[in-house]
Design a binder for these strands. Sequence first.
RNA 1: GGCGCCUUGGCGGAGUGGCUACGCAGCGGCCUGCAAAGCCGUUUACACCAGUUCGAUUCUGGUAGGCGCCUCCA
Length: 463
Amino acid sequence: MREVRIRDTLSGEPRAIDPTEVVGIYACGPTVYSRIHIGNARPFVVFSLFARFLRSEGYSTRLVVNVTDVNDKIYAAATAAGEPSTDFAARMTAAYSEDTDRLGLGRPDAEPLATETISGIIALIEDLVRSEHAYASGGDVYFRVRSFADYGKLSNRRPEDMDQGEEAGSASLKENRLDFALWKAHKEGEDSHWDSPWGPGRPAWHIECSVMAEQELGASFAIHGGGSDLVFPHHENEIAQSEAAGRPFAQIWMHNGMIESDAAKMSKSDGNIFQLGEALDRYGREAVVAYLISGHYRQPLAFGPEQMEEAAARVERLRNFFRGHPLRAAGEGDPGEDPAEQQRGSSPGSSPDSRLTSFRDALADDFNTPRAMAEVSELVGEANRERVPGAPEALREMLELVGLDSLASAEGAADSEADALMMEREEARGARDFERADAIRDRLAEIGWTVRDSADGPSLVPR
RNA sequence: GGCGCCUUGGCGGAGUGGCUACGCAGCGGCCUGCAAAGCCGUUUACACCAGUUCGAUUCUGGUAGGCGCCUCCA
């Protein structure tokens, strides 16, 4: 088991993960008011793979990714779609599951819904009201920011600095403009609401995450994650709500950077989005995953057709490697059986073992996926140059950790028509009738096959 | 205005006080009947100005530019 370190947003320092207890990870998922885009997929991929890595290192890990399914924008979008908001949210939640399923990384251990957490939300708000960290006002309930001395510690802001200017509209129900809503009174036009001690209404943003995290992971869990755009106000407010109520919260804060399109953050409100489903259709799941791990998770990552095509090319190189270097079948001989092979395989700095070690070391060091993938590239190059015993197996293990082991799987065999054409082409080549051989190759391309000649004869690869 | 981050070769993107990151693309070559795949090579990459240092892309200060958050946002 390696020591795994993550750069903590709160302290600004790398922090080691405690191996003595279950590593609870709570990552903020989407608000389901539309289909998700590539940017929304980044945290899903980062945290899924990070949890996978921790498990492979022997850490007992529990990953929770919530869905926020009640919100102003959901009401608005549902109205626009002429659909009850609960139906709309359910439809979008299902679409989110379908899209992320297609990434092939499995599901988080728990995916709680805000609308299924109402009683816990009300209980937390009651606690806060009782302790005067919150107050009811006109059917709403607000958090009293000035009552929480640590407010601003995550995003490094001071309430004094923020508390400037006039509240827009003097009719505010808040005592102070920094106060934020915990509960919102039912409004005309909103077609869902719940009973509460403050009247019918619904939870505001932020509060659901405080409650779901604690319900799923207990107090004082290891890691709270999400996009860097959530640091303020969302995560700052979560800390305030939970800690003001005397409930210890996250130990480490882990934030992923934004996907950028045309050097600007990809965001639904700016409209410069590329939907995940479309990316999967166009480039395939491996390219999408390879793209998302091509940069360090904390850094912004440029998005564009060029980047996606590059990722697809990288993925194709890996596929080609496994086409030419099949995995040893189980029981087909040990790496150390042949003394000559053993010697070559253990040459310093180039052995599969040392690459695998470096790969895992990179992931243990603030989950540095690009550094890890550089080890994959190096080993592929070495093994393409000359046979390196154990390389395919080591590569498959590395790729499994980043959800790309499907690249090592054998592809379906060519159909009989393609096989017949390939044989025909060989006959033509044998007769040095290259015009006919090339025509047959074109025909094979039309039906989806690329011919690769080698010393061992031709083979067919799907286009 | 406040807080934080960033500026690396055509593009993407790691990293380090002195040693080729890596990938993609282009170009040249090897292999091949031709391709495909693979391999080899590819013209001094670290925004600018000072400082610290034997030595800075890497540390410090400043300048310029960019991004994020401060309102919904992964």
